[in-house]
Design a binder for these strands. Structure first.
Length: 638
RNA sequence: GCCACAGUAGCUCAGGGGUAGAGCACCCGAUUCGUAAUCGGGCGGUCGUGAGUUCAAUUCUCACCUGUGGCUCCA
């Protein structure tokens, strides 16, 4: 007999091989109706998978987040069922649930078209209405080979099973798949789904293997959730930084310059410069020293750092300079280390914090480039902290303050992940455990919640990853802090301790925005191009209603200009409506409309971006005070 | 790099074996307006680049370049 512990503390006895369905039914028939799957000791099983061991037992219903993955995985089978009906020649690969939906990979001679997708979707609806049960069977290797004789990809997978592994198949109507499960009871459970797009994908993610055709889709229990998700995708498209940047004239690329190389237009440059100025003041306040290092560097440096060995495929080629090889730097760390080594260092000097807005160049494969998000030349807001082991907690604490302050300024909520030792790693497990504990302690001490990303560290040390959440709920890579056990060794970094002997410092790498390019690209989408006042390329546009008040409008412009406000006068001979419309489309935070009434009272009719006709009339003096306050506090609105 | 798709005026796009069209933008003129497009006129493209097929290519074919969606990789 197996003993199952229920969440309320009660226990149930069930014979070995009992079906979860029967156990759930014994708890209550209503529960069985709502049950999607069960969880046994953390493993999700469907209702028809025989129980082989006892443990913590929990029923999963639509309310549990785990149920969504079960639904989506079943959705993948339903998709494959439909595809097989319409394209019997399609060989099946894998079809897992993923974060926002599911996909299925097929090997086909003719790639799928958007019209195919529509047909598959209607065919899926048929499969759903046919209400095929998902039938689980456990079979022998020989039997499995027979069943998948026509599916070479499945046969390959079968070859990897060890003798003691259970091979299971799932059948829904005409379709059979090699699959571990779990699945929903039958195909009718899938009600709210949408096929999204197709894409090529390597068989088993290996670029040396053949390309399969992948169909991406999403599914939810509730119609509202599906609609919300599709709306978020739409909203993401509407905010696409490449489109907005074109409309707002922020940056461009050009084939003559080269792909993945960003040309910052004046308006984009203003945004970037505001961020840099802000960050510069911030880090100087937090005890950093600014440095500059060259863009091209002798290869010797990268031999010492190991980049030439480990990062070569991402480095641009060498250029010959009087017989010596130079390369554009892919990272700033070695340069900062050399500055550290330009003097003998004492424990009294530490911590040393070098910061640089360092341009780096990395050879990224052409297919990976994407707007400002993935480029070949970018500027990192990079810093390296050299300190003693004892100083690490205080440095982490300082960094958490710094990140928190900065992310609040941009209006990003965030989460933190602590990435731990990967399989292939430098240094002993003890050193790692110690370092991971130091990081965790620093977070815990200030009550900062975080999750673990097990095995997600770099080979040279653990790291903290900040994940930003943007205005429509998407996650972005934010600041990272990495401990480095490697470079101090390779360069033989030293400082003299109080005991008058040499010691090896600890090195911390950290970026806040990461790369100016990627961060600004993200900001464009976060704000949908409507930048807060302090970042807006054009902050105020003054619009005289008619020529007779041009002089007054000019005086408003002058007064704003002397306070450093980025202001323009739009006195073109266009209608007021036309000029207002253009200002709105350029997402200018404030339009100061002035007519005869305003000129008489030294005031403006202020149109706030996005507020439509709800204008406020205020004196120029009051407007100046308002602007100055919003700039000083870097207000997020308007 | 790989798979699929795309490239026509500054932008968004229509067209199609006989060397091109719209709207917006831009320029000129009229208009002087109270909160999201005033009217009229004009300028503007060797149809991504190169080669091939053809009497004839922007249109068909191939290669390359650039971009898009993914894969792989990543700030």
């Amino acid at each position: 007999m197996l003993t199952l512990r229920l969440p309320d503390g009660a226990t149930r006895e069930a014979p070995e091989g009992a079906l979860p369905r029967d156990v759930v039914a014994s708890i209550g028939p209503r529960l069985l109706r709502d049950a999607i799957a069960v969880e046994l000791d953390g493993e999700v099983l469907d209702l028809d998978t025989p129980l082989r061991k006892g443990g913590a037992f929990r029923v999963i219903t639509e309310k549990d987040p785990e149920s969504l993955a079960v639904l989506r995985h079943s959705g993948a089978h339903i998709l494959a069922t439909a595809v097989r009906r319409l394209r019997p020649d399609a060989k099946i690969g894998f079809g897992p649930a993923i974060e926002d939906g599911f996909y299925y990979d097929f090997e086909v001679k003719e790639p799928f078209t958007p019209e195919d997708l529509e047909k598959f979707e209607s065919e899926m609806k048929k499969v759903i209405s046919e209400k095929f049960p998902f039938v689980r069977e456990e079979v022998s290797q020989a039997e499995a080979r027979k069943r998948f004789a026509d599916d070479p990809l499945k046969l390959e997978r079968l070859g990897e099973f060890s003798d003691d592994e259970i091979i299971s198949t799932y059948t829904d109507g005409p379709f059979i798949d090699l699959c571990r499960g779990p699945h929903v009871p039958d195909t009718s459970y899938l009600k709210n789904f949408k096929l999204l797009h197709t894409a090529g994908a390597y068989w088993r993610g290996d670029e040396h293997r053949q390309m399969l055709q992948r169909i991406y889709a999403t599914a939810f229990w509730k119609k509202e959730d599906l609609e919300a998700h599709l709306h978020q995708l739409e909203e993401g498209k509407r905010r696409d930084h490449r489109v907005l940047a074109q409309q707002l004239d922020l940056y461009s690329t050009d084939a003559r310059v080269g792909p993945g190389l960003i040309l910052w237009h004046p308006k984009g440059a203003i945004i970037r410069n505001e961020i840099e100025e802000y960050e510069k003041a911030l880090i100087l306040r937090h005890g950093y020293d600014l440095v500059f290092t060259p863009h091209i560097v002798s290869e010797k440096l990268f031999q010492i750092s190991g980049h030439l060995e480990n990062f070569k495929e991402n480095m641009f080629g060498a250029m010959d300079v009087e017989g010596a090889s130079y390369r554009p730097k892919p990272m700033n760390c070695p340069g900062h280390i050399v500055i550290y080594q330009s003097h003998q260092r004492s424990y009294r000097d530490l911590p040393i914090r070098y910061a640089e807005f360092g341009a780096v160049y990395r050879y990224e494969r052409s297919g990976t480039l994407h707007g400002m998000m993935r480029v070949r030349g970018f500027t990192q807001d990079d810093a390296h902290i050299f300190c003693t082991l004892e100083q690490v907690p205080a440095e982490i604490d300082r960094l958490l303050d710094l990140c928190d302050e900065m992310l609040k300024t941009f209006g990003y909520p965030y989460t933190i992940e602590l990435a731990t030792r990967p399989d292939k790693a430098l240094g002993t497990p003890e050193v790692w455990q110690n370092a991971e504990k130091t990081l965790a302690d620093a977070l815990n001490k200030r009550g900062q919640s975080f999750t673990y990303d097990e095995g997600g560290g770099t080979f040279y040390g653990p790291k903290l990853d900040f994940k930003l959440i943007d205005a429509i709920g998407r996650k972005w890579q934010g600041p990272t802090v990495q401990l480095d056990f490697n470079l101090p060794e390779r360069f033989g970094l030293e400082y003299t301790g109080p005991d008058n002997t040499p010691h090896r410092p600890i090195m911390l790498h950290r970026v806040l925005v990461g790369s100016m390019e990627r961060f600004v690209g993200g900001l464009i989408e976060h704000f949908a191009g409507a930048f807060p006042l302090w970042l807006a390329p054009e902050q105020v546009r003054v619009i005289p209603i008619a020529d007779e008040v041009k002089g007054f409008a000019q005086s408003v412009v002058e007064r704003l200009k002397t306070r450093g406000v980025r202001v323009h006068l739009d006195d073109r001979s266009e209608t007021l409506n036309y000029r207002i419309r253009e200002g709105e489309m350029m997402k200018i935070p404030y339009m100061a409309v002035v007519g005869k009434r305003e000129a008489e009272s030294d005031s403006i009719a202020l149109r706030v971006r996005g507020a439509g006709k709800k204008q406020e009339v205020m004196t120029v003096t009051d407007f100046l005070a308002r602007i100055e306050d919003e700039l000083a506090t870097r207000a997020l609105k308007p």
